[in-house]
Write a protein that binds this DNA or RNA. Structure first.
Lengths: 199, 199
DNA sequence: CAGGTAACTAAGCGCTTGCTTAGTTTCTCT
DNA sequence: AGAGAAACTAAGCAAGCGCTTAGTTACCTG
């Protein structure tokens, strides 16, 4: 193992490259990260990256797509676990927030680096993003329909809810003392307030 | 005027450089922007930038600092115009949101590019950011103290309020039909809900 | 254990980057 | 008008970039 490697040395080379890229992209952004940064972070020579990925952008795309997919799975699971809109919103907001804390490096790539993808790749992740958006809006609409939520506009409110969760990736730092669970619970409580539920 | 210039040709050279830099940094990020992009955006040769700014980072710093200062002034003014915490929060949220819409290019630089500053410059803008944070928290605390607001934790709630406003810079695009005033009013209403005011 | 394949590296190519230098034009002031 | 300063450009340098090439090592299969 190279002395500069920062990712888990027991993981597969592809996984180490993804880890190293996630860390570097999250820390400095896509363009400020060099392929040499990624290679040495994974314990490889500069050329080693190209055995597994055709380009730096392809690495970003793989990271971005798998990150979006895991966030989307998480949202769907949270919704399926709740039996009422209130439970669904509460679980969704807690889990989605926790994910942004625990996976804050991947989350930053997901939220802030996707515009550096090629137009084709960008379109693909934008579809996943729209899907997330409408999952949240649907929960709100069901809550409004059955009278438990009161919101002026479900699209605006869904956007604000996502803003609160997504913005965690911007301000979170591992030096912060609050646990993912605590931050998730706080945001879930704020979400219920925003939709006028639970009183 | 060079055929590639995109900024107002009647503005001073320094202003044109700041405009061109704001546009480029907002669109592609600090590192993906070249000094040649900025120069040609301002209608200058590549060397023309260095007559007015010592480095690309100095240009980012000037933009970032003046952007933070104008946002801070706006917050202070909004607070001074209201006579109750409710009025202050409502005005503050509306104006701060409107600023993120109208100045969305500068706002993106302010919110997303400040970590590319040198440590000294970064520290300087971080002080301004903390000041914004505490202005909002103080309004909440006064509202809690006089009984008009009910919040669990004023720091968490202030952060969520800022998230909703700041995140506008991430999702806003000039192709969106809603006016700055409409978006500001929406966010102001959401803010009052979040603090349990006005019912 | 030979033969083939996949993983990896050393070296470096062509290009772009931030910025400098040396010189020219434009403006200001007496 | 003429001197001095400020604004600006043409040309280009050193360094760093993404990525390739040619070759070596490690591994799997029959």
């Amino acid at each position: 193992m190279s002395p500069t490697a920062t990712s888990d040395p027991d993981a597969s080379t592809v996984d180490r490259l993804m880890q190293a890229a996630a860390q570097a992209f999250a820390e400095k952004g896509f363009h400020a990260t060099t392929t040499r940064d990624i290679a040495s972070g994974a314990g490889l020579s500069p050329a080693g990256v190209y055995v597994h990925f055709g380009s730096k952008e392809e690495l970003l795309f793989n990271l971005s797509r798998s990150g979006h997919e895991s966030a989307l799975r998480l949202l769907r699971r949270a919704i399926s676990e709740g039996s009422t809109p209130t439970e669904q919103l509460e679980t969704l907001m807690a889990r989605f927030t926790e994910w942004h804390v625990e996976q804050y490096q991947v989350a930053r790539v997901v939220q802030y680096e996707h515009h550096h993808l090629t137009p084709e790749h960008h379109a693909e992740v934008l579809a996943l993003r729209k899907e997330m958006d409408s999952l949240v809006r649907d929960v709100l609409d069901r809550g409004v329909a059955d009278g438990t939520f009161s919101v002026d506009d479900s699209a605006d409110t869904a956007l604000a809810l996502l803003s609160i969760a997504v913005d965690v990736a911007r301000w979170y730092s591992p030096t912060i003392k609050r646990t993912p669970t605590e931050i998730g619970a706080t945001n879930a409580a704020l979400a219920l307030r925003l939709v006028g539920a639970g009183r």
